[in-house]
Write a protein that binds this DNA or RNA. Structure first.
Lengths: 152, 152
DNA sequence: TTAGCTGCAAAAGGTTTGCAAATTA
DNA sequence: TAATTTGCAAACCTTTTGCAGCTAA
């Protein structure tokens, strides 16, 4: 059940010293529902549907706090606003610069390069903060062995 | 000589239908001098040292045009302003989220992952637009076999 | 000459902040 | 009760735009 998931996260929030408020509960539920890729503005609108006086600045502040507590993460898919998702679902975004479609790929795909960056440069990469830009299968005429891009 | 390099780029600019103006010449010289990683604001200041009435908006417009003509590129290293560099030096930026240092790594390092993205997802990645975030050797205590991060 | 650039001023877009009042633990 | 969080308004920072005048080709 989804409520269980929510309660689990709220407990984690409390455990880490944060307070559970209407705004935070609503934001986390919405992130659970939507499954990620939501901007602060969209999130605000969704939250305000049920709680009209939750202000945009509150949403930003909640997202910041939840970020610091390791509950939420954000990613940059392009030049527009950042998108937010729960921190337990880390993945890399591939964004098509031609059609804007977004493909999520699992961390595992980057294992070889990760190892190389660590070996040769001592650099430990954190996946997912910035998208990788390029061109999707549909826009290049290449065929993909796996998933198709999601609409954007 | 550096002037040769500049003239070569200005010719390219003309060839591609752009006009050579004071602002554009100054911007390109500055990018040649500085070697990249310069923000629009820094670039404006540098240009204004010699040409005080080149306006910020002109710099942005020049950078945009030069981008469309394939002469300049920009990259996002973090949450701040974008940084600009000449297009003939494409590379990937690794940014340390702890100390902010920036490491440039050649495209070749990503060859295996690139091939995999193309094979499995039909996605052709364009390197360098967004940085890869992580932690540098100094901040993790790992040793690196190659270069050290540059100051930021 | 004339399409392409530029300066200026103003606005846009996303995000952050100061402060007093409200709320959580 | 005490420390956090919130609503609101206003600011911030980077980048974009409209427009009339200027300039490179």
């Amino acid at each position: 059940m989804d409520g269980d998931r929510l309660d689990e996260i709220l407990d984690r929030l409390r455990d880490r010293g944060g307070r559970v408020t209407t705004a935070r509960r609503a934001i986390i539920s919405e992130l659970l529902r939507g499954g990620g890729h939501i901007t602060a503005e969209e999130l605000t609108a969704a939250v305000q549907a049920a709680h009209p006086d939750v202000h945009t600045s509150t949403v930003y502040r909640c997202l910041e706090t939840l970020g610091e507590l390791g509950i939420v993460e954000h990613a940059h898919l392009g030049h527009g606003p950042a998108v937010y998702h729960l921190a337990d679902d880390t993945h890399q975004h591939l964004v098509c610069e031609s059609c804007g479609s977004v493909l999520e790929v699992p961390a595992e795909v980057f294992a070889v390069t990760d190892a190389r960056l660590r070996d040769e440069f001592g650099f430990t990469a954190t996946l997912g903060h910035f998208a990788i830009v390029g061109r999707c299968a549909a826009c290049t005429g290449l065929k993909s062995r796996r998933r198709r891009p999601t609409e954007h």
